[in-house]
Amino acid sequence: MKKTVELENARKVYRLGDEKVVAVDNISLSIAEGEICCLLGTSGSGKSTLLNLMAGLEKPSKGKIIIKGKRVDKMSETQLALFRQRNIGFVFQSYNLMPMLTALENVSLPLTFRGVPLKKRNQLAAEMLENVGLGKYLKHRPMQMSGGQQQRVGIARAFVSKPPVVFADEPTGNLDSKTSLEVMGLMLEMARAHQQTLVIVTHDPGISKYADRVYTILDGNIETILENH
C-alpha cells in the first residue's frame, strides 16, 4: 500500500532557558493512503507536537517528515503554505472558525485559496454542509450554533477540497459523548468515501477504537502500536 505520511527518526527539542525538553524522541512511522490512524496519549505526552511535525506546522530538530513523497521539513514557509492548501485539511478542538463569517463562508475558505470561482465554491460548500446535517444553517455564524454544530462546520471545511490527508487534533475534546460519536462517524465516513488518510490525536481511548492503527505516545516515544480489525 502507498505511504502517505512518513517520519524517519523525527525529534523535537524545545529549549526553556538552560533546559532541554524532548517533546518527540526519534520517532519513525508510516501511515498508508486511506488509513485511519490515531495518536493516543495523555496531556504532555508529545502527541500534539508529533501531529504538528507531520503537518509541517513545526520543524523537527532532526529527522525527516515526508508527505505524499515530499520532504515538508525542507520546505520554506511559502512552499509549505501552498503544499498544505493542496494536500492537507485540519479539524481543531476549538473549531477555529472565523466568527464574522457564515457557515457557508467558513467552509468555502479553502476553496477560495485554491482559486475556485465563487459560484462553484458556494455550491461545493453548501453540498458539504448538507452532508454534515447543516443544510439549514448556511447563513448562521459560529456564535449562533452549538459546539457540535460548529465542529460539523469545521469538519466540512477540512474535507470540502478533498485533501489527501486530514489531521484532527482532539476533534471531540469539547463535545459531549453523543455528539462525539456523531462527529467521529462523520469524519470516518468522509475519509473512507474518498480514500483519504485521517490522523486523529486524542487522549480518549474510546475515540481510538475508530482507527485502523493506534500509536500510544508516552514521553515523546511510541509506547505501543495496536492494529484494530
Rank of each mutant, 00 (worst) to 15 (best):
M1R: 06
K3E: 10
E8Q: 14
E8A: 13
N9L: 08
V13S: 08
L16Y: 11
K20H: 14
A23M: 08
V24E: 04
D25W: 05
I31M: 01
E33Y: 04
E33W: 02
E35H: 09
E35L: 03
I36G: 00
C37Q: 03
S43G: 12
K47N: 11
L51I: 12
A55N: 00
L57D: 00
P60H: 03
S61M: 04
K62M: 04
K62Y: 02
G63Q: 01
K68L: 14
K70C: 04
R71M: 10
V72F: 09
S76Y: 02
S76I: 07
L82I: 01
I88W: 05
V91D: 04
N96V: 00
N96C: 11
L97M: 08
L97C: 12
L97D: 02
M98F: 15
T102I: 05
V116C: 04
V116T: 13
K120I: 13
L124M: 12
A125F: 07
L129Y: 10
L134R: 07
H140F: 13
Q144I: 00
S146I: 03
S146C: 05
Q149D: 03
Q150E: 07
Q151R: 06
V153C: 09
A156W: 02
V160I: 08
V160H: 03
P163Y: 08
D169G: 12
E170T: 12
T172E: 01
N174W: 05
S180T: 14
G185Y: 05
G185V: 07
L188H: 10
R192Q: 14
R192I: 10
Q196E: 12
P205W: 05
P205R: 05
G206I: 06
I207H: 04
Y215C: 09
D219Q: 10
I222E: 01
